[in-house]
Computed example of a mutant assay.
Amino acid sequence: MPLAYLPFAYLHQTQIMPSPSIDVYIAHGWGLNNVIGYVNSSFNNNQLQVLKQSGIKQIYINPDNDLGGKNGTIKMIYDLLNNKMQPFVFCLDDQYKDLNDLFVKLGGEEAKKVFQEQFNSSINGIDWLTNYLINLDKNNRVKEFLNIISKLTYQEHKTIIATKLLK
C-alpha cells in the first residue's frame, strides 16, 4: 500500500476506523485522533455506514492534490450529501501533495500550524464542487455538471449548484 497516497477526512467528536496510512499517523501524532483514511480515493460504503450510525453530521475532507484526490472528494461529497451529512473541504497549497509531503517539507510544528490554518478555511462541499466546475473548460464543465447532478439525490443540492454556476 503506498503510504503517502491516502487522503483522509477529519471528523469531529468521534474516533472512526483509523487507517494505516502515514497521513493518518501524522494527524494522530498531532492529537487529531478523529481522522480516517480512505484507500485509493474510494470512500467506501462501510465507512459511510459507520458515519451514519455515529450521528456525525459534519465531515471535513482534506484530499490529496492530485486527480485521485479530486475524484475521491467529488464522490465523497455526493455520498455525504445524499446521506444528509454536511461535507466541508480544505485543501493544502498545491506545493504539497498531501499531509505527509507537508510534514516532510516543513517539519512537525510548522506543518501542524499550516494544516490548522487550512482546516480553519474549510469551505462547504457544494461550494467546493461549484468551484471545481467553474475551473473546468466550458465543454468539460457541462459534462461534469450533468454527471455530478445525476448522482445527487436531493433537488435542493442540484438547484444550489446550478444557481451558483449561473452567477
Rank of each mutant, 00 (worst) to 15 (best):
F90A: 05
L136S: 09
Q116Y: 11
Q116L: 14
R141S: 14
Q116G: 01
P87H: 03
Q86Y: 09
D94V: 03
Q86S: 08
L136Q: 15
C91I: 02
L136W: 09
D137N: 15
I123G: 05
W128E: 06
E110G: 01
Y78N: 04
S121G: 10
E117C: 11
D98H: 07
S121M: 13
T130H: 05
N131Q: 12
D93R: 12
M85D: 00
E109Y: 11
G108N: 13
L136T: 09
G107T: 10
K105C: 02
F119Q: 01
D94S: 14
N135S: 12
Y132E: 04
S121R: 14
Y96C: 03
V142Y: 11
Q86N: 14
F88K: 11
F90K: 05
P87K: 05
K138G: 10
K112S: 06
D101A: 10
L92C: 09
L106A: 02
I126F: 02
D101M: 06
Y132G: 09
F88T: 01
T130G: 07
I134Y: 11
L106K: 14
L102K: 01
L80S: 05
N139Y: 14
E110T: 09
L92T: 03
Q116M: 13
W128F: 14
R141M: 15
F115Y: 15
V89Q: 05
S121Y: 10
M85Y: 02
Y132S: 08
D98Q: 11
D98I: 01
K138W: 01
V114E: 06
L133I: 08
G108P: 06
F103I: 07
V142L: 15
K97V: 00
